[in-house]
C-alpha cells in the first residue's frame, strides 16, 4: 500500500533536504518539522530551518524481516540519528556492514531511492545516512 502522491510531494523539501523548523521563542529545533512548538504552543514562533545532514548514531538495528516492498533490501540497517543541531530522526544506514555500526559513530546524509510504487508508479526518493569517512 503506497502513500498518496500529494503526501510525498508536499514533503519533498523535508525528505530531500532535511528542511525542519525551529521555534524562535524557545530556540528548540524540530526535525521532522512541527508547526506547533510543543513547549510554547500558541505563543511559539515557528520558522523553517535547513539541517546540515550531519549527526551520529544514537541507536541502530539491522532489519531481517522487512515490510512489503523492502524485501530485497534485507538485511538493512535502521538508525536513530542525532543531528548535530539537536533533533533525532529515523533513517536507513547504507553502504555499510552490520559490524561497522556502533553507537556514537558519525554519519552524513545521502540521497537514495526509498521505495517505488510498483513498476509503473512514482519513485519516492529521500534521505538515508552513511558512515562519515
Amino acid at each position: 500500500m503506497s502513500e498518496g502522491l500529494a503526501i510525498h510531494w508536499r514533503l519533498i523539501p523535508q525528505r530531500y533536504n532535511l528542511v525542519g523548523t525551529e521555534c524562535l521563542k524557545c530556540g528548540e529545533k524540530f526535525f521532522p518539522p512541527r508547526q506547533l512548538c510543543p513547549n510554547c504552543r500558541r505563543v511559539g514562533e515557528i520558522r523553517e530551518v535547513k539541517f546540515s545532514g550531519e549527526g551520529e548514531i544514537y541507536s541502530y538495528t539491522v532489519i531481517h524481516t522487512p515490510p512489503e516492498g523492502f524485501e530485497f533490501m534485507k538485511p538493512y540497517a535502521m538508525g536513530v540519528i542525532k543531528l548535530i543541531e539537536g533533533p533525532f530522526l529515523t533513517a536507513q544506514l547504507v553502504d555499510c556492514k552490520p559490524e561497522d555500526l556502533e553507537i556514537g559513530k558519525r554519519v552524513e546524509l545521502v540521497f537514495r531511492k526509498i521505495i517505488a510504487d510498483g513498476s509503473s508508479g512514482i519513485i519516492r526518493y529521500g534521505y538515508k545516512f552513511k558512515l562519515k569517512d
Binding site: 503506497s2 512489503e68 521505495i115 510498483g118
Partner: peptide
C-alpha cells in the same frame, strides 16, 4: 526477475 525495491 521480480527483484525490485518497490511496493506491489
Amino acid at each position: 526477475k521480480g527483484v525490485k525495491l518497490e511496493k506491489p
